[in-house]
């Protein structure tokens, strides 16, 4: 049952999966951790991104990664629009905690239903030269469909990290997270900063969506599985810490991969939710909390 080879394979698969999970969770960590906007609809935006990628790939043969990058622009504006509504209806009136949450839950559900109505409930997949091929390092087989998302996810993490810590705008976002007053004294409008940052968070969703459909076929309701996973990663990573998210994503990826290999695939998902529950109960600030 237990062999060294299986162990290494599970470990590598878990790490690769983790890189993808990071891409999945960065947008939420940005909005939830730094902006205090609990966008539980984030996984639904990602599935939406997967379907757009599927659409242009199927009809025009566009490379999925390229599609994800292209759709990032309209998604940015979609995010800006969603935040505008959220701000005006909930944040401004101080009703964000209860009703704002319900609002995003409704958006989540609506996106899922619209996808079902438009595309049906069947699984959809994309075509690209690297999907279905495997390269070998010794006896270890690595699937490109896992390796590419890992690379892109890692690049996205590094990009966002650099952006937040090095650029003026990124520092302003961190400022909003810590103390809006200080930002206002600097002469920046915190609402504008939050709007742009939220837009960026949603923009990452298309790329994550492309990665998702590269890894495997996608159906509209798959977002539910990811809700717990992405919150587990976001909370475990310490809200708003991009490097923390990456580490947490690797941990969850490896934990799931081991569970799937040694206990059974049907238990894999329970692992991330279990970790989330324990993490929430014991240390809500996360492992790598600010």
């Amino acid at each position: 049952m237990f062999s060294f080879e299986l162990f290494i394979n599970a470990l590598v698969a878990g790490l690769l999966l983790g890189g993808f999970y990071a891409a999945f969770s960065l947008g939420l960590s940005l909005s939830f951790g730094l902006l205090d906007v609990v966008n539980i609809a984030h996984p639904a935006f990602i599935i939406f991104g997967s379907y757009l990628t599927f659409y242009v790939n199927e009809n025009f043969g566009v490379d999925p990664i390229l599609a994800g990058l292209l759709f990032a622009v309209p998604f940015y504006f979609l995010g800006v629009a969603v935040y505008r509504i959220y701000y005006n209806v909930f944040e401004k009136t101080g009703a964000e905690s209860l009703r704002g949450l319900v609002f995003f839950f409704g958006i989540f559900f609506l996106i899922e239903v619209l996808l079902i109505i438009t595309f049906g409930v069947d699984y959809r997949l994309v075509r690209a030269p690297y999907i279905g091929k495997t390269f070998h390092i010794g006896s270890l087989g690595v699937a490109w469909r896992l390796f590419v998302p890992f690379l892109v996810g890692t690049a996205l993490t590094i990009g966002l990290y650099q952006f937040l810590s090095k650029t003026f705008f990124g520092k302003a976002v961190m400022g909003v997270a810590q103390d809006s007053l200080a930002v206002r004294l600097m002469g920046a409008d915190p609402i504008r900063i939050k709007t742009i940052a939220f837009g960026i968070g949603i923009a990452t969703a298309t790329l994550a969506g492309s990665l998702l459909i590269i890894i495997g076929p996608v159906e509209p309701a798959i977002g539910r599985e990811y809700i717990g996973r992405v919150f587990a990663i976001t909370v475990l990573g310490g809200l708003g810490s991009m490097s923390g998210v990456f580490l947490a994503a690797l941990i969850i990826g490896v934990a799931e991969s081991f569970t799937a290999s040694f206990i059974g695939p049907s238990w894999a998902l329970a692992v991330s939710f279990g970790i989330l529950l324990i993490c929430l109960a014991v240390r809500p600030a996360g492992l790598f909390g600010r």
Binding site: L101, R224, I227, S266, L269, L277, L280
Partner: peptide
Amino acid sequence: LTLRLRGVFFSIATLALAVVLQMFMTN
């Protein structure tokens, strides 16, 4: 759980609970 979890954290925990219990029933 409400001792430690308020607002959204409580809500996410309930969602997570639903998925975990569904896993148990599935198995």
